[in-house]
Each structure stands twice: as C-alpha cells, then as structure tokens.
Amino acid sequence: MRRWSRRAFVAALLKAGGLVGAVRPSSASDTPLRFGVTPVILDDDVGFLKRWSEWLAGKLDRRVVLVQRTRYQEIVDLLLRGQLHLAWICGYPYVQHQGQLELIAVPLWHGRPLYRSEFIVPVESEAQAPEDLAGRLFAWTDPDSNSGWLYPRFRLDASGFDPDRFFRRSIFTWGHARSLQAVANGLVDGAAVDSYVRETLMLHLPPLAKAVRVIERSPLFGFPPIVAGPALDPAGRRRMQSALFGQATDTEGRALLANLNLDGFSTAGPEVYADIAAMAEHLGRSRRS
C-alpha cells in the first residue's frame, strides 16, 4: 500500500468532516470506547488510525471508536459533555479544563514528553525573525492550539506587539499540516506550527517540509497529552494507561509508535504544562471556561 502518496495525502487533508473509524473486537461486551483525535498528530492517515484503534481494542478487550472533528474545540466539548471517553488534545485546552480532565499519558518524543512551537516562513522568504512578518499574511492553526496560537501570540505580546494587529491579515487553517502547506504554497507569509508535526511530516513528505524554513523555535513545552473526560471510569483509565505505557514493549505497538514517530507514552505529570498555563493566564485569553 502506498500510504503517503501526495494525492492521497492532499485528498485526506481536504477531508474536513468528522471521520469515524469503528472497530469490532473479538468480544464486544459493553459500549465502545470513544477516543477523540485532533490534528496534534497527523490525523489524516486513516489506515494508521484504524490499525492503532484495532491494536488498542485488542489490549483493552473493548471496541474502540476514533472520533475526529475539524476543530480542537469540538473534541474538547464532546469530551467535557461525556460523549467521548478519551481524547488526544493540545496542552492548551488541557490547562484550560484541567479540573474536568485527567491526564492519562504524555507521549515521548526524542525521549522526552516535550515539543516546541516553531515560526516558519517559505524557504525563499527574507524574514529572519517573527518581527519581520509585521504587516504580512499569517496562518494560525487553531485558537485552542498552544504551538499554533497561544505561544506565537505570547511571543509577539512579549515583544510589545498586539497579536491582533501585528499581521495585515491572518487565517485559521485548523491543522499544523495545513499551516505548513499554506506557507509552502505561498498562501501566507508565515505560520507557527508544532515542531513534532513538522518533523514527522518531513519524514512523510520531504518536498513539503523542505519548502518551509524555521526562523525561530520556542522553549520546550509539554507534549499534547492523552486525557480522559468524565465519561471514563477509573478502571477504564487504568486499563488505558497500562495499554499505552506498555505499547513500546509490544512488537506491533512499537511499529505503530514508529509510524507516529514517537518513542512511547510516559507518566509525566501536569507540571510539564505549567508554562502553557502561565502563558494562557498572561494573555488572559482563557475564552472557554
């Protein structure tokens, strides 16, 4: 199977609607586990998501349904309303709703539960720093993203700019991969993206990743976590944790992790998201309470 052909990838990118992968395990005893996925990972590889949900279903002995939505907020809303048991979301919505959400696992990337936000410009751009993008076109990822919204705004604010007026015009792409595309295709002059998504995408689509240039990297932040909502009982949370923590020791699980470009899942605590929480507080932008 040619999994990451350009056409397939682009076609998948354009699919903005909710994607539902339903899996029927060998012994379907109770209600399926509903797992929300956001563009903090490359959520366009339907084949991978299906294999991962099958693997999870086998470990949990429970049907697993992966749920996708266009925006982070929709997933977070579903999670908070109990319509999802689990979700892989960004650290920013997690800190916003820390009281209702429980941290299940934090992915390990390059051996650490950390990632960065990166300012990117087209490779031919003359911009050397985010300040050079003043009065230009800019792409935000999602208003609930840390690396594609919260941090870049914090960065501009810290330099004394009003993030809402700094650019001539800005757009939302609703995904890091799309922000990369918007920059690579010249739709915008710059964007801020998740370093993990950018590097992983570079593995799959070298030409796209090569069309952009990183002009500034943020400090390290806590990696987008997998969190549980009120709908998942403690037993289910423990089973989920053991499945995820054991994934790196399982042959098929390792293959799936390799596909995700991750090393495994860790038990890192909420403290790795302290910086994000601080930035959110600073900007006073906790819009969703």
């Binding site: 903005a16 939302f172 799309r178 739709l187």
Partner: peptide, 17 residues
Amino acid sequence: QDNVWLAYSLLRGPDGA
C-alpha cells in the same frame, strides 16, 4: 465565515497548484 483555508482548499481542488 471568513474561512480562507476552506476556500483555498476548494479552489486548489484535487490538482493542486
């Protein structure tokens, strides 16, 4: 809805640029 990305991805269509 001021959704530039949606309009762009529509216009770009399956053929890309």
